[in-house]
Design a binder for these strands. Structure first.
Lengths: 219, 219
DNA sequence: CGGTTTTTAGACTAATTGGTCTACAATGCT
DNA sequence: AGCATTGTAGACCAATTAGTCTAAAAACCG
């Protein structure tokens, strides 16, 4: 029913993403998005209430896409395997979807929260990461036998922060990920967890046994 | 000689940085910088040719500051110690200079290069990282006995990417770095280097001996 | 003091930007 | 065909933005 769309929302988001990637967040104006996508301003405002919404939806789309495989990886029954698979999922997503991965490396949630006014999008931004946080909490519990702040932090470090740090420079430079990086990420994540095992345990006064993260001596 | 300055350049850069940190790159307009710093537009344009120059100088200042201690750390005669000290320097800089560290976590060089027109600043942006690259190349040579692409990549991963990845989330959220993070970074960096030792060596057909990075078996 | 230099101060202009509005084109339905 | 619906198209407007310009303030110097 109705006229078929010539410039789908996804194409507009793609154009916005392309602009952000090549010219920074400041260059993604409505006119620039219109020029880049070929869609007239009318069509853009027909789908989105404002530029902020375009940018926010663009970012949310990228996060959702990246979360899919990551969450899947975390479901592995063996917690250490799950943590390392999470890192691998982040690495692989960067190879498979470079545009979205580069976007997530270039923009942070914090950059959007300030400007968004639409309450629906605000809530969405707030809740977007909840499932991942829950999954990581659960993984921390399985890894360390508890979900204390230190345990969760160590889990996020190994499964998210180290992998993201390892790929970020290559995403920014738009160069392929070096061979062997994946293995180095895994080794780094493994070692950080082992090292955290000691810390988390010592703050535990010895009540609950450590699990699955080695003896806490990194070497 | 001449009227004393009421609004020094550094204060204007501070205001710009504060805006970028709290409202994203889009919110750092001349008027906003003027309001934030208290300096009138005239004073801003008296010192800087354009907003782009303000943002670029602001970023360059932050990079310079962060490079100082990092380069110092890399000078350690023992290469493995130097690499780990580099990571520690990045970690410590984030605690000591949170504003600049947060800025560097929020903005990338790539976001500036596109918009800068001043040739002096363009060259400065290009050369800014050279000394660090040279030092890292040298460190790779000392660590792996060569400065192949793989060796340099592994060195940068351990000394820069992993530490930066470990602190980025905390900088974005403006929360203090967790206790024990520094040790976990060190363990991760150490393991990534050990793992890279194997890769770098196998691509070497066995001619030059590995040095200083363990036997290449992470565990 | 009068002259010079540097900075402040902000009114002003031109361009860009976000956003609105109306006319119309292309489809499905009856 | 006639009508409802959905999307295209871009002229148009108001607000913001970058950047200019002139006047004067505040220091130093001889």
């Amino acid at each position: 029913m109705g006229r078929p769309e010539l410039h789908p929302a996804s194409a507009i988001l793609d154009a916005a993403r392309s602009l952000v990637l090549t010219g920074g967040a400041r260059s993604a104006t409505v006119d620039a998005i219109a020029a880049e996508s070929g869609a007239p301003k009318g069509s853009i405002y027909h789908r989105f209430a404002s530029v902020d919404e375009v940018l926010t939806e663009m970012w949310i789309r990228g996060v959702r896409r990246s979360q899919e495989t990551f969450m899947e990886a975390l479901r592995d029954p063996e917690p250490l395997t799950a943590a390392l698979a999470g890192g691998r999922a982040i690495h692989d997503f960067a190879s498979r979807e470079p545009a979205d991965a580069r976007l997530l490396a270039a923009m942070r949630r914090e950059d959007l929260v300030q400007t968004v006014s639409n309450p629906r999008l605000m809530r969405e931004l707030e809740r977007l990461n909840r499932p991942v946080e829950v999954a990581l909490r659960d993984l921390a519990q399985r890894l360390f036998g508890r979900a204390s702040r230190a345990a969760v932090e160590a889990t996020v470090l190994a499964a998210v922060d180290i992998p993201q740090g390892a790929i970020r420079r290559h995403l920014a430079a738009d160069t392929p990920l070096p061979r062997g990086l994946c293995d180095q990420i895994e080794a780094a994540a493994r070692a950080s967890l082992a090292r955290a095992g000691a810390t988390v345990s010592t703050s535990n006064k010895g009540s609950a046994r450590r699990r699955n993260v080695g003896d806490g001596r990194a070497r």
